[in-house]
Simulated assay, not measured.
Amino acid sequence: MDIKFVKRDVLKEKPDQKNLGFGKYMTDYMFEIDWIRGEGWVNPRIVPYGPIEMDPAAVVLHYAQETFEGLKAYRTKDGTIQLFRPEMNARRMQRSNERLCMPSLDEETFVEAIKALVNVEKDWVPSEEGTSLYIRPVVFANESALGVHMANEFKFVIMCCPVGAYYPEGINPIKILVEDELVRAVKGGTGFTKCGGNYAASILGQVKAEKMGCTQVLWLDGVERKYVEEVGTMNIMFKIDGEIYTAPIDGTVLPGVTRDSMLQILKEWGYKIHEEHVAIDDIMKAGHEGRLEEVFGTGTAAVISPVGELVYKDDSVTINDFKIGELTQKLYDELTGIQWGKLEDRFGWTQTI
């Protein structure tokens, strides 16, 4: 791919690595490429980060043809920069785009574009403990036309921002509300895709949770409102009687890259894994009986997030005395150890920039 580079006149001042937060500071540049029906992907370029001009009749604003991804670049102790399983993000975006009738970059071009941008922005990859460069690819329909149809023009953009912990609590346990009225996804819909509409539909539940003193929402299935599925920004796993339970990837749950990585590590460690539908009533019962040993969310942004309390209707259970579990901590150390180059990558997951 022949990528045009447009240089900024003045580079931005970089933020304090000890106070990055999440998603607050965008880097100097972004990658762009356009798709036009009959021509395909054209004009790849790295340009100064800034506003994108868009017609008010742009299809994405009216009919939400849009998908995105999230991955990170990590700086190792010797200064090397590496990505974590970017090919998985490429494949997931392809599946998302197929569902929403959108074009996709092929896997090789997707990864090449990310590497090219991160290479330009290598000075933005932080070195402080627990920090990384978050990478956000997004595709959206920018054709100017009203009327519901597959758009004829799309734009693919990659932006980056240095980040610290996603949740203010960091690796400390969070309190989660089990939502039993609102619905996030149903089979046949877009629950398995990473599209903005899924997240927009989850905001009301998030607002409700925050009013009740909870950090996040655990969604139940959209038909019976009985089986646990995923948290708003993470997949979720339960350790009950020494075994791991998590919702299956069958159309309503996002196929998380971190989820897949955690399951591979757990299987290597000899844990019995149940990828099956588990009723929230059974989870709460296990909690009251002391059999619910640990609960943790998994995702690129937070990596792993221990759950200290589940609130469901008029009931609640505290998990592991609201402390991070031994397995949760071990998984966090293992995965981040691979991501930051502290541990051997025996799975072949990392790619060096």
Rank of each mutant, 00 (worst) to 15 (best):
A286R: 03
D314T: 06
E181T: 13
I114L: 15
V183F: 03
P51F: 08
R45S: 14
P168S: 05
E275P: 12
F192G: 05
Q216G: 03
E243C: 05
E229W: 00
G242C: 08
A301N: 13
I283F: 06
E53F: 03
T300N: 03
V278N: 00
I244G: 01
Y29F: 11
A185Q: 03
P48W: 04
E289D: 15
D123I: 00
N97H: 11
H274S: 09
V278I: 15
D55F: 10
E268R: 15
L100Q: 12
N43W: 07
G38I: 08
L263S: 08
E289K: 14
E210D: 01
L292D: 00
K187G: 11
Y312H: 00
G256Q: 07
E107S: 14
K122N: 13
R92A: 14
E98T: 13
R259H: 11
P51N: 09
V47I: 13
P44N: 09
E334G: 00
L254Y: 02
V307P: 08
Y271A: 07
V303A: 07
K272W: 00
E112P: 00
T298K: 03
T193F: 04
K7Q: 13
A58R: 02
T350S: 11
Y49S: 13
V307R: 05
L71I: 07
P306T: 09
V253H: 05
K323D: 06
